[in-house]
Design a protein around this nucleic acid. Sequence first.
DNA 1: CGTAAATGATTCAAGGTGTGAATTACTTGG
DNA 2: CCAAGTAATTCACACCTTGAATCATTTACG
Lengths: 151, 151
Amino acid sequence: MTEHPSAALTSALSFQIGVLGATVTDLFATRIAPLGLKPKHAGLLALLAREGARSQAEAAETMGVAPSLLVRLADQLQDLGAITRERDPGDRRRQELALTAEGTALLESCDQVAERIDATLTSDLGPAEVAALRHALSVMTGFGPSSQRGE
Amino acid sequence: MTEHPSAALTSALSFQIGVLGATVTDLFATRIAPLGLKPKHAGLLALLAREGARSQAEAAETMGVAPSLLVRLADQLQDLGAITRERDPGDRRRQELALTAEGTALLESCDQVAERIDATLTSDLGPAEVAALRHALSVMTGFGPSSQRGE
DNA sequence: CGTAAATGATTCAAGGTGTGAATTACTTGG
DNA sequence: CCAAGTAATTCACACCTTGAATCATTTACG
């Protein structure tokens, strides 16, 4: 019997993850705002760092956003000097995005912000509990469609 | 030494929770759309079910949204017949929101949707792992400001 | 070959969501 | 009884994101 008569929605995992995710992302956004970045910018930087230079279409696909949005994000990152945009010599339709030193530094800063948030987030959890959470997240992140959104 | 040179942001808990939360909330939104509801509507219904009739200002505070937005949400729920809005006799500035039978039914539907999402989300986790996740979430949800957003 | 379909990037207009300021109604404290 | 504070509401505005249209380039194929 897994039926809860009025399980109150609030106790659903998906609801809690949604709420917590929104809160955490808001906090992350305000903390990186001084850098001139928003969460999706950070997501794109992280994507480039993980998988190297990619075409914009591929990046949009993996981030789950419209290609037209990725153009703007790339524009803004380029204005910040965080990425370079070069035509692929082999296929001149493609723009290859690559991190600059500046971009790597910005990503580092975002990383530090995220880790500080992690610290407060898990301050009431033991190491084993954090490990269990990390494991569950890593499993769940690889579900549904191929998703890697910029938060 | 808790320093990870290029810990890649992607591995930060806050980042993963943010990304997963956005994905899950999107999915939830599309599934409850046929009911005429959006995640925040569901959040408000759940709040009323948990804590009973409240003034709009209190509801806005706990949900972390502007009072002006709560007016709209309440308007729309009222149009659906999901809630009633009555002036508090003791303080005629206040509007008391209360669930109707229709609203309770809608909340039930949202709950079922969320639980179905939970099922797919945790399909690759064992019962103990799910319990650990649930525990970690319940601890973390009670952090930072008093937050109970509508996803 | 060389033309048609497909793919990538880009721009633009439009929709939806949320906020802050201004307004009105009501309550409360001096 | 008046002033300040609080609740609800409306409204205009800003922001994010998308889809459609456009242009450049590549690829498939007749």
